[in-house]
Amino acid sequence: MNGTDIAAEAAETAAGAPAESAASLLEALRGFVSAEALTTALKAAAILVIGLALVRLAALVTGKLTRGRLQGRGSDLAVRAVRYAGFVLVLVNLFDVLGINLSALLGAAGIAGVAIGFAAQTSMSNLISGVFLLSEKAFDKGDVIQVDATVGVVETVDLLSVKLRTFDNRLIRIPNETMVKSNIINATRYPIRRVDFPVGVAYGTDLARAREVLMELAAASPWVLAEPEPLFIADGFGASAINLLFGPWVRKEDYLAVKNELVPAIAKRFDEEGIVIAFQTLTLNGSVEARVAPKPKAAPPRAGVGKPARRS
């Protein structure tokens, strides 16, 4: 081959290369946007658009249905659960249409789930406890509750914890798991409640008169309900007093007002009536033998020196 032939061949090759690559590119593109692939893409898009719209609609309907019927944040929780379940369904369908094998993905997800499960054991426990708390409806936002030694107003009922505002204005977060395990006293569940005043009167008190006085005080109080009648129980014989229990009924919002009114009123009226509110007394019986010790013969201290003798 001479030099002229080689140059001609090189020029021919150089001219044919772009045409060939363009053809192969077109071929690849044709393969990619085949009718089948196009259908798949359209299907996936449809699933995505319609699915997401349906999820949104389902969440909206769930919100409307549950609002006002479920307590606290129960409605939000239900909406969220429907939304997440919907997303998962849309995703599974999308993978199915795209031909992605889910078994491997699920296997991986299972392993990841176990790992996350171990790591998030406490959170999951609180989450499930939160669901139980919401379904039990033992209290609601704004209720005054006592959990063990903690008393406060329920600020929020969240998925993981309940937040209480104490009366001295502190925020206390109690995990839902603790709430489920503890005894909860709801002081404001019912519209009325009894305010108990345990009173100990001295032995020898006219109990009928004491009862009359207490009932008169209840009748005079604007907070105390006329019906149900106040409770009066002669509770028993104590060490230093006869124990009485006086329990007028009030509206739950008047609880503190009636306490502040009746405690001083009872003390004042009992004092006027000569009824003694008993306190702890100890009566000692026996004889006292006095023995006078002889004075020690000691030299008188010099003026300004020494300390006065301590008496015992």
Binding site: Y190, P191, I192, R193, A219, P222, L225, A226, E227, P228, W249, R251
Partner: peptide
């Protein structure tokens, strides 16, 4: 002189004006 009374059970009822 006004005094209120509760008509119903302690769990559920109606707040009324007492009329002795």
């Amino acid at each position: 002189a006004r005094k209120t009374a509760w008509f119903g059970s302690p769990q559920n009822g109606l707040l009324c004006l007492a009329a002795g």
